[in-house]
C-alpha cells in the first residue's frame, strides 16, 4: 500500500483526485491539506510515497513548500494556469497535470510514477532552482524554524551570511537557515538593494548606516541594527557604485 497526500487549496480540486484514485486500489490517501503549512506537517508525519501538489496556494506556493522538506516524496504537480510553472516543468522534464484533467491522463501520470517511482532528485532540485527565480518568489524567503514556517519579505532582511551548506538569513527576529547557496541569492535578489560585500556576506544596502575602514584594505558596514558586516576590497567597490559614492 502506497501512501498519498493531496495538497490543494480548493476542496473540489482534491475531490476529483480522490475520485480518480478510486481506480487505483494500491494507493491510499492518508491526508488532505488546504495549504503548504498543513502540507509540510502532514508530509513529516505520514512520510507519504506520493503527493499531489497544487502550485498556487495561500501564503507559500507549492515550490516553496517543497523547499522546506528534507525527505521529499515523489510529486505529481497539478496546476490550472501558471505559465512560469509550466515552463519550469517542461525545462526539467517533470510530469504535471493541467486542470481540468481526465481520468485517462491521470492514470497515465500514475503509471509513469509507478514505472520510475520518482523523478530524479537532481531534476527536482533543478526545478526548484528555476522556480525560485519567479518574480513572486524573489520577493520573499520562506524558512523553517523548528516546526514553524516563516515568510520573510526580502526588504526585512538585514544581511545574509554563508554558513557551511546553508545561508543564514539575518532579520529583526534573529537568524534563519535556508538551504540555498550565496550565489543563488546574489543572482536572484535585486542587485540595487542587495550587494555581495564579501565572499561570505550579502548586505541589504538600505540597512547600512555607515561604512568604516577596518584593517588594511578592508572595510566594515555598520547596520541600523548595530550589526557589523565585513566588506572586502572588491565588495567596497560594488557598494560604492550601488550607493552612488
Amino acid at each position: 500500500m502506497s501512501k498519498v497526500i493531496l495538497i490543494d487549496d480548493e476542496p473540489l480540486a482534491r475531490s476529483i483526485v480522490n475520485e480518480y484514485l478510486q481506480k487505483h486500489p494500491g494507493l491510499e490517501i492518508v491526508a488532505e491539506c488546504n495549504d503548504g503549512f498543513e502540507g509540510v506537517k502532514a508530509i513529516q508525519q505520514h512520510e507519504p510515497d506520493l503527493i499531489f501538489l497544487d502550485i498556487q496556494m495561500p501564503k507559500i506556493n507549492g515550490f516553496e513548500m517543497l523547499e522546506l522538506i528534507d525527505q521529499r516524496p515523489s510529486v505529481i504537480f497539478t496546476t490550472a494556469f501558471d505559465e512560469f510553472a509550466i515552463k519550469a516543468f517542461e525545462a526539467h522534464a517533470i510530469d504535471y497535470l493541467l486542470k481540468p484533467f481526465s481520468q485517462e491522463r491521470f492514470d497515465k501520470a500514475i503509471q509513469k510514477w509507478k514505472e520510475q517511482k520518482t523523478t530524479s532528485k537532481k531534476n527536482t532540485e533543478d526545478l526548484l532552482e528555476t522556480a525560485s527565480q519567479s518574480p513572486s518568489q524573489t520577493q520573499r524567503i520562506v524558512v523553517k524554524n523548528g516546526s514553524k514556517i516563516k515568510i520573510i519579505p526580502v526588504q526585512d532582511v538585514f544581511y545574509l551570511e554563508a554558513a557551511d551548506d546553508y545561508v543564514k538569513v539575518h532579520t529583526q527576529e534573529g537568524g534563519f537557515l535556508k538551504n540555498k547557496t550565496m550565489n543563488h541569492f546574489e543572482q536572484t535578489l535585486d542587485q540595487n538593494q542587495f550587494v555581495r560585500s564579501h565572499r561570505s556576506y550579502i548586505v541589504n544596502v538600505q540597512q547600512i548606516t555607515r561604512i568604516d575602514p577596518y584593517e588594511k584594505d578592508n572595510h566594515i558596514a555598520i547596520l541600523r541594527s548595530g550589526a557589523k558586516v565585513p566588506v572586502s576590497r572588491n565588495g567596497y567597490v560594488k557598494l560604492r557604485s550601488v550607493l552612488g559614492l
Binding site: 480548493e10 473540489l12 480540486a13 490550472a80 493541467l98 486542470k99
Partner: peptide, 17 residues
Amino acid sequence: PHFLFNSLNSINALIGS
C-alpha cells in the same frame, strides 16, 4: 485563464458527485 480553468476543474469534480 487561471480563474477559468480552476472553475472548469471544479465543475469537473461536481459532475460526478
